[in-house]
Design a protein around this nucleic acid. Structure first.
Lengths: 340, 340
DNA sequence: CTGTTAGCGCTTTCAT
DNA sequence: ATGAAAGCGCTAACAG
């Protein structure tokens, strides 16, 4: 059914022109008359020739027009987070604008070797589950840009997570506060739990640790202690794991919940209200990300708002431009009813 | 910093052997002595040569060892669904077993052209958001296998969705039932709403339509009417959209909720109980998928259980084997407390 | 505007 | 066990 071996060469023979002409018809319209081009394209469509083989093209040109987006995990850690899919949409849109294509790559894959020769570069979104990928991305000769994650010497697009977290925490902490941090992927554990004495996971690269730094700085400044027993690790930003953590944390009778995502914050608020506690009088809750649902909830959520789609777009621009520096994006503190 | 132009040829020159020997050292260990191979590999590592360029390798061999998994959408429709990420994990595991690599591709991409020449084939998971991809996959000469979706003439791995839905519905419907279907992506709309007179979206390929067929057959057999006004479209399997639909649907005072995913069913149960209604006495609820949370909820959820990771594994096996037929996987009806 | 030709980096006979 | 050479399908000089 499918015609075998349809190549530039065979097609050129069948049409009685040279291979260069066919190639030009597809890739360099200005090199031949519009009518000839039209004729050739039409003939190719009829023959079932879909255009130059991309692998050969890439080998010859040294670039493929494909950019890999490396996800934290295949999908797992994105679950329930509108933030990730918005970011991806921003990236897709940006790449389309530049005639480039997107390829999703799992952060739990064993190595980038399988695809590195097929892509023009990588956009790393969040700390990949397999830390070895960070090493590989650090030393590849391809372009690399990181978002919500850091690789020394590589370009990045980020908000100032430490500063944003610091500001937010400063706003809600007083010397008499008893804060609890509901953090995202702080240690290597499958269940929600206080980080206790466990070593922080991938301290270098994760955005979660920058946020934690911010909380801690604010706490210090306000004269509030924030020991590891009051810092929870939540493996995924979803309701189930969030509720697990909140339930445990409430036993400590905290007065402030510093949540590293809005999803976590909303789950927390639901549970807190259900327990008959008042927000913000008994407990203040702040989130991170600025998803729509937060502004619709009652009480409205105090949070850091960052435009994820915009971030995706900016990431692409910086990537295409071959930028090598750290782009800092603006963010906005949204003061809602969930804090005083 | 990165050594320029490190190719098989240059490396061969530096080591004073022929290109074939280097190639063999990497790809055909049996063609040379273990010690020479070791020496070469070590030398390459030192030079920083990472192995044969995959694009050139692929061009020459005609296969790349990469299999594309086409997702419904980048991530959006997977949000909040443990089912998808389990499936992907199954696929990743299966491919790893066969020394193959996985590439995620967005179902909302404009075309498969960008990657078709780089991969050995496609595993389509669910109806892609861009229906044009189905046409393209139908006529590509590469291997294609579909899961939870159908392309005539292509291999597939599925459970019998129609039959499963039929059995489940038969179990809960009586002549006096007033059922409501909470369906997934039945029409082309961004909000949860009854499908009314709107044309069904991509009727051919979607697994949601097979399930609907099953519900309808059961209804007919039980002498129950199930008009379009009682059939809801939910754009994504997440809590927010599910609650939207449930809230609207409850106005109809249904006695049975036929939910096309467990996520939807659990959201429905939460809301129903919150309204003071009794499950299953006032309303019976059934789901689809068999996620763990359903069996932990109170009341436990009646649903169709399918092993998504197993499905991923089977999909890979069928794909690798080059199967051309429809593999039907077993499923299990789980009778929980949410139905009588 | 069109044709010829030399590779892009690699694998694979076929000799040696 | 190793080397020489012919392409895989394509693009970019360059010549016409």
């Amino acid at each position: 059914m499918t015609k075998p071996n349809l190549t530039l060469k065979t097609v050129a023979q069948q049409l009685g022109v040279s291979t260069a002409t066919i190639s030009n018809a597809f890739s360099r319209p200005d090199q031949l008359s519009a009518q000839l081009r039209d004729k050739i394209l039409r003939a190719c469509a009829e023959l079932g020739y879909q255009g130059p083989n991309k692998a050969a093209q890439s080998l010859r040109k040294g670039s493929s027009g494909i950019v890999a987006v490396v996800l934290s995990d295949s999908l797992e850690y994105m679950v329930s987070d509108p933030v990730a899919s918005q970011f991806i949409r921003g990236v897709a849109k940006g790449l389309e604008l530049h005639g480039q294509h997107m390829l999703l790559f799992s952060g739990s894959a064993p190595s980038i070797d399988a695809i590195v020769d097929f892509v023009d570069g990588f956009i790393l979104y969040g700390a990949p589950r397999n830390p070895a990928l960070i090493q590989q991305l650090a030393r590849t000769s391809k372009k690399v840009l990181t978002v919500d994650c850091d690789i020394p010497g590589r370009a990045s697009v980020n908000i100032d997570n430490e500063q944003a977290a610091y500001q937010l925490a400063s706003q809600v902490l007083t010397p008499h506060s008893k804060p609890v941090v509901l953090g995202l992927r702080l240690i290597d554990a499958e269940q929600s739990q206080p980080i206790g004495a466990q070593p922080l996971w991938e301290q270098q690269s994760s955005v979660a640790h920058r946020r934690l730094d911010g909380y801690l700085r604010a706490a210090r400044e306000r004269g509030v202690t924030l020991p590891n027993e009051q810092i929870w690790h939540i493996p995924q930003s979803n309701q189930q794991f969030a509720e697990q953590a909140v339930l445990q944390a409430l036993a400590l009778k905290p007065t402030v919940l510093l949540c590293m995502s809005d999803i976590i914050a909303l789950s927390a608020m639901r549970l807190v209200l259900q327990q008959g506690l008042k927000i913000p009088d008994d407990i203040q809750v702040v989130g991170f990300d600025g998803i729509d649902e937060g502004s619709r909830y009652h009480p409205t959520l105090t949070t850091v708002c960052q435009r994820s789609d915009e971030k995706g777009l900016q990431a692409v621009e910086a990537f295409i431009a071959g930028s090598n520096d750290a782009t800092l994006l603006p963010y906005q503190i949204i003061s809602g009813e969930s804090s005083r």
